[in-house]
Design a protein around this nucleic acid. Structure first.
Lengths: 261, 261
DNA sequence: CAGTGGTCTAGACCACTGG
DNA sequence: CAGTGGTCTAGACCACTGC
């Protein structure tokens, strides 16, 4: 509709401090930003369909192709899911297929969950004040309220993963061990449903360690068993850190699988 | 030019055994396959530019947009690199920016290689016959000739990575410890230049282990130090496995970094 | 300046889904 | 069948590179 543009339309330019480059921003990037805003403001919720490409094109006064390219990128980031003939949907951690997207520990032989259902046991869940370290990771101030959860995951009746995780207190107000235990399905799916917090991406730092006494007891392994230490920070929209997670993985019969592209 | 198509043009359909689905294949996928063939046959070599989109469109008798979409996907797979104003180039492991694409071990604090250059030492390089295990991994028959290399990587004068790797004998005929030692730069860059073998993707299985005596000596760590075991299979074009690599990583001052999307 | 990739449009038609 | 996403085309123009 309006092919006369040279720079970002300015109407919706992200506020970036530097004034260095003229920062030409293509239209579809701006559209992408607008859709992102609608996702953040929960105009469309996880699992729901967003308006059709034609509708969005009309709404933003651009061609279908431009909307298409914006959606393409969001789908590549797993924020949206396209379903031919049906529509485009807000991605969710509930779908069977993408359920354990962030869990990369798999059995050495056999399928994803041929070992039967994974058993989750919440061991602890308490509110406390953020240490400097936790605060830094979650972009809080030390002393702010945080939730600390400890749980054990077992595969085929063998305790395999011991996880400690910390969540910012404010967005997760009302989270208790009971609610965690009561919910059946991935934890991130519950976060979406119950707290409107959708984890979008994460970063992990992996090391080889030896457990302390408490840890070895939870996992029922000798104290000198080498374990994988997996420290994760998970982010919502806007690159806001929303979870710090420290996992200890037993790797006698499982391994962390990673595809390099 | 020829908008009358319903299925794969059959002229270049990949041979897949199953006859299950009608397998509609869009034009740009077929173009992608053709470009892939040219890459495999080394019509265009790593670092070189491929013909312009317009040229390719004329060659394949399709529109520029269709070629564009094919190239887009190949670029997303890191097989091609687009450079605005210059052309599209065959990706290479030589470029500074993408140099250690497959090495995910990074220092706990600090930049990628703020530790100074990584020191590589080839410890061993010999020909031998593939065990059943190696043969399976490399898609060979047990008894086939393979090359076995052992090397140590040091950062800041600290031995940090001990790697054993196995290569199929045929494509790497003439590879010796001297040639490995003499080449300065990433090993995969040498494989491209000297043997025409380009590693395209890889899969890694990661575990926590404790070293045996020889390993602990090479890495100069106590025998009870937990280490990351990283087993990698690297593939060329066509998903052909071309390398099996077993690495032991020290993680006292480094960690394996992984981004989850 | 010409040549390259990058963006945007408008329109036609195909494949898939569900009523 | 209508509505959705998916493919393909043709043409215009923009941004970047190097001569």
């Amino acid at each position: 509709m309006n092919p006369t543009f040279t720079m970002a339309d300015s109407s919706f330019s992200a506020s970036d401090g530097a004034v260095s480059t003229p920062a030409f921003s293509p239209l579809y990037q701006q559209i992408k930003g607008l859709i992102l805003q609608s996702l953040q403001s929960a105009e469309w919720k996880p699992g729901e369909s967003i308006p059709s490409e034609m509708d969005l094109a009309a709404r933003f006064r651009v061609s279908q192709g431009t909307v298409r390219k914006a959606i393409d990128e969001l789908a590549a980031d797993h924020l949206l899911v396209r379903r031919q003939g049906k529509g485009t949907f807000v991605a969710t951690h509930e779908e069977r297929h993408v359920q354990y997207r962030f869990l990369k520990l798999v059995p050495d032989n056999g399928d994803l969950h041929a070992e039967g259902p994974t058993q989750r046991k919440i061991v602890d869940c308490k509110r406390l004040r953020a240490s400097a370290e936790i605060a830094r990771a979650l972009d809080l101030r030390s002393g702010d309220a945080v939730l600390q959860v400890r749980r054990v995951l077992s595969f085929a009746d063998t305790p395999t993963i011991l996880e400690d995780l910390w969540l910012p207190g404010a967005p997760f107000k009302g989270l208790t061990a009971e609610r965690l235990t009561g919910y059946h399905g991935p934890m991130y799916a519950m976060f979406e449903k119950e707290f409107g917090v959708r984890m979008v991406r994460a970063e992990e730092k992996i090391r080889a360690v030896v457990p302390d006494q408490a840890q070895s007891q939870w996992l029922k392994v000798p104290a000198d068993t080498p374990l994988l230490s997996v420290e994760r920070i998970a982010y919502t929209y806007n690159d806001t850190p929303m979870e710090l997670r420290r996992g200890l993985y037993r790797t006698e019969r499982h391994h962390y699988h990673n595809a390099l592209n």
